[in-house]
Amino acid sequence: MAVSEDDVRHVAALARLGLSETQVTSLVGELNGILAHMDELQQVDITATSAEPDATHGMRMRDDVPNPISLHAEREAFAPLMRDGFFLVPRLSTHGAGDSADDEGEG
């Protein structure tokens, strides 16, 4: 399973990493170099393993009582850009004024 330049571009797009063409080229080599070492896993006999989740410890749960982790700084202290209490980000290119439909996200 060799990684191609297109694979690197696709994965970079999924991960929202902007890569130069030079980076793409060198990353193809690096990733293939690393992944070559992973091939040995394909030979391992895994019949003794279980697909069941390990439920030894189970999940501790908390009561439904408000007790937020208190923050020692205002959001403005760490946010790149805030106005009227909102975090601001560049508007999605697909959103003109007045369009509130969310067509890139997921419900």
């Binding site: 929202r16 990493l17 508007r91 290119s93």
Partner: peptide, 12 residues
Amino acid sequence: DGLRAMYEATRS
């Protein structure tokens, strides 16, 4: 230029 470009520039 836009949200996606901000993401990619910030992260790269």
